[in-house]
């Protein structure tokens, strides 16, 4: 991160950032559209879908928001769950922030505000190749992703309104299906040697969830079970 001597191959321009974002756009568009449809099925209005995508700007958190909202979870449970779900961004920011220490605090707040799983992925891959990251490039990447997300979520919401009686069509299951897909994709990034450990932990989690559901509402069970699983995970890893 310090004293880079090699010549940067990727120019530090906004447009280069936009170009490097394009391969990830299909992901934003498909999840965004799905979120809009799920949001409507969860009794959230198009305006609220728009506000969520502008202000929260996090796919999994927005889906979980719908799930908790439909379940009638209290405000505190929604906010704590969203906080815990997005703690992973802390890890990602921690990983790429050292590349931007030469920029002002305000610019850095900008980079952090628009950080997502995908822009993090692109930035990490690029920093691996280039050894450095440029601010204008990062802004181009971030702004493109952000615009695509807001647009696709809102359009998804509008499409969702045209689908009458969403439950009959299984639309309410879109949320669970999305979590299954996100889980499988996340597990796909786990190193092969650790996969069995994770699968055993999910087994533990199922048992913990079953027991907890006798005593606490579902959203509390999710939170307690997850933190218990993470603790068991740390204690039992080799």
């Amino acid at each position: 991160m310090t004293s880079q001597v090699e010549i940067t191959k990727i120019p530090d321009t906004f447009w280069q950032g936009v170009r490097d974002c394009i391969p990830t756009l299909l992901g934003y568009i498909s999840i965004g559209l799905a979120f809009g449809v799920v949001g409507i099925a969860s009794n959230i209005s198009v305006l609220e879908i728009f506000l969520l995508s502008v202000l929260v700007y996090a796919g999994s958190a927005q889906f979980i928001f719908c799930g908790l909202y439909v379940a009638g979870a209290p405000v505190s449970a929604v906010i704590i769950t969203i906080f815990v779900v997005n703690l992973r961004h802390f890890l990602m920011s921690l990983t790429i922030a050292p590349y931007f220490t030469r920029y002002s605090t305000l610019r850095n707040i900008g980079f952090g505000t628009l950080l997502t799983d995908e822009t993090f992925g692109v930035a990490v891959a690029t920093s691996g190749k280039e050894g450095r990251l440029g601010g204008r490039w990062m802004d181009g990447l971030n702004v493109t992703a952000y615009s695509a997300w807001i647009l696709s979520c809102t359009i998804g919401g509008v499409i969702g309104q045209w689908l009458p009686n969403p439950e009959k069509w299984g639309m309410d299951y879109a949320l669970v299906a999305m979590f299954i897909a996100l889980l499988v994709l996340t597990l796909g990034n786990v190193p092969k040697t650790k996969l069995m450990h994770y699968i055993k932990l999910i087994g533990c989690l199922a048992v913990i969830m079953y027991v907890l559901l006798y005593f606490v509402p579902g959203h509390v069970a999710v939170l307690i079970a997850t933190m218990t699983m993470a603790t068991i995970g740390v204690v039992t890893e080799k």
């Binding site: 890890l91 932990l201 989690l205 969830m209 559901l213 579902g218 699983m229 993470a230």
Partner: peptide, 22 residues
């Protein structure tokens, strides 16, 4: 290391929650 387990934990818990009828 603890934080690294959180995404898989949350997503699994949400899927599992949907499999039970309370």
């Amino acid at each position: 290391r603890w934080l690294a387990y959180i995404p898989v934990g949350i997503l699994s818990a949400l899927v599992i929650e949907g499999l039970f009828d309370t």
